[in-house]
Nucleic acid binder design. Sequence first.
DNA 1: CCCGTGACTCTAC
DNA 2: CGTAGAGCCACGG
Length: 111
Amino acid sequence: MDQLSAEARILAAIRAIPRGRVAGYGEVARRAGLPGRARLVARILAGNGDDALPWHRVLRSDGRIAFAENSRGWREQARRLRAEGVEVVRGRVRMVRPDADLDAALWGPSA
DNA sequence: CCCGTGACTCTAC
DNA sequence: CGTAGAGCCACGG
């Protein structure tokens, strides 16, 4: 596979995250068939310009917003998440850590 | 080719 | 639950 299709798959994986739900960079990468490429996902997002892309639903593995606290992106992401009903406390969302095998664990912040 | 940087992650303590 | 360190991947100087 080349990087172009890899990017396309990553973007598709992000677009597939339901409204009101979140996913980690690593999850997105894995779902795109690129395990271990969490940083690639971050890089793609950093260069993305598509506003229609639900980039705000992508968080770190621990549920924290990846941007520096109180930075512009940080605030914007928190705002967008709350706008769709996601509870954001101190820049972080309740994420499920356990074995990401079940769809529920893979897609939801709280079951 | 080595080195620094980053919207990352995992393991220890 | 929080910090510290090492590992990782892609990129640009």
